[in-house]
C-alpha cells in the first residue's frame, strides 16, 4: 500500500454504472511542490490533464479600435479520481497557487469539499497567496508539508504554522507526496476536519 509507484492502468477505466455523485477536493500549492505527485499517488487513474480557457474583458479600452479588448487566458490543470463506493466518486484537482490563476480557483472551488495546501518549507512564501484566497472564500483546508529529502531546515509543524500565520484550527500534517498511504492520510485529515466542523454546526440549532 505504501509503495511509491503504484501501477495505474494506461486506459481510463470507466466508473461504475451506479455512480451518481461527483465530489471535489483541490490540491493547491506553488510550482513543483508535488501536487501532481500527490494526485498520482492516490488516484485510480493516471492523472489526466485538461484546460480551462477564460475570456475576460481587457482592463482598458483599445483606443484605435474603439472596442473593449478581450484577453484569453488558458490554464492547464491535472486531476485524478478515487471511487469511494459504487455511487460516490471523488475528484482531486491539482491547481497552481499563483495569483494569475485566481480565475481558475474561483471555478474549481465552487462546490468543493475543501482544499489541501501543499507546502515546501524551502519556499513557504509560495503558499501565502493560496492560503489567503482560501480563507477569503471560506473554503476549509488542511496544510500538508511535503518534506523533500534535501530540506535541511526541518522546521517543526508549529514553526511552519507560525510562519504561515495559520490559526490553531487549521490541521497540519507531514506528508510524502510519493507515498500512497501518506497522501491518503492527508485526505483523511481534511475530511475529518470537515466532519468535525459539520458536526459542531449541526449541534448548534
Amino acid at each position: 500500500m505504501g509503495s511509491a509507484t503504484s501501477e495505474l492502468p494506461a486506459r481510463r477505466t470507466p466508473l461504475a454504472d451506479d455512480a451518481e455523485t461527483g465530489l471535489k477536493i483541490v490540491v493547491v500549492g506553488g510550482f513543483g511542490v508535488g501536487k501532481t505527485t500527490l494526485v498520482r499517488s492516490v488516484s485510480e487513474i493516471r492523472p489526466l490533464n485538461t484546460e480551462e480557457v477564460m475570456t475576460q474583458a481587457g482592463a482598458g479600452i483599445d483606443e484605435t479600435a474603439g472596442v473593449e479588448r478581450k484577453t484569453t487566458t488558458t490554464v492547464a490543470f491535472d486531476f485524478g479520481r478515487i471511487s469511494l463506493n459504487e455511487r460516490m466518486v471523488l475528484y482531486l484537482f491539482g491547481a497552481p497557487g499563483q495569483e494569475r490563476f485566481w480565475f481558475l480557483w474561483d471555478r474549481l472551488f465552487s462546490g468543493t469539499l475543501g482544499a489541501v495546501v501543499l507546502v515546501d518549507t524551502r519556499r513557504m512564501q509560495d503558499s501565502w497567496y493560496a492560503i489567503d484566497r482560501l480563507e477569503h472564500h471560506n473554503t476549509p483546508f488542511v496544510v500538508a508539508v511535503n518534506r523533500f529529502d534535501d530540506d535541511t531546515d526541518r522546521f517543526t509543524l508549529e514553526e511552519i504554522r507560525q510562519a504561515l500565520a495559520l490559526g490553531e484550527h487549521v490541521p497540519m500534517i507531514d506528508c510524502d507526496a510519493r507515498v500512497r498511504s501518506s497522501c491518503k492520510d492527508v485526505l483523511v485529515s481534511l475530511v475529518d476536519h470537515l466532519y468535525t466542523m459539520a458536526l459542531a454546526q449541526e449541534g448548534t440549532p
Binding site: V188, V191, A198, L199, Q201
Partner: peptide, 25 residues
C-alpha cells in the same frame, strides 16, 4: 447526474455524506 448540493444551508456538507467519504478513503 449533478453533484449533490455539496453544502447544506449552513455552508458545510452534511455529516452523513462526509462519513461516507471518510469510510471510502
Amino acid at each position: 447526474r449533478h453533484p449533490r448540493a455539496a453544502r447544506s444551508v449552513a455552508g458545510l456538507p452534511e455529516t452523513a455524506l462526509l462519513q461516507e467519504v471518510l469510510h471510502g478513503l
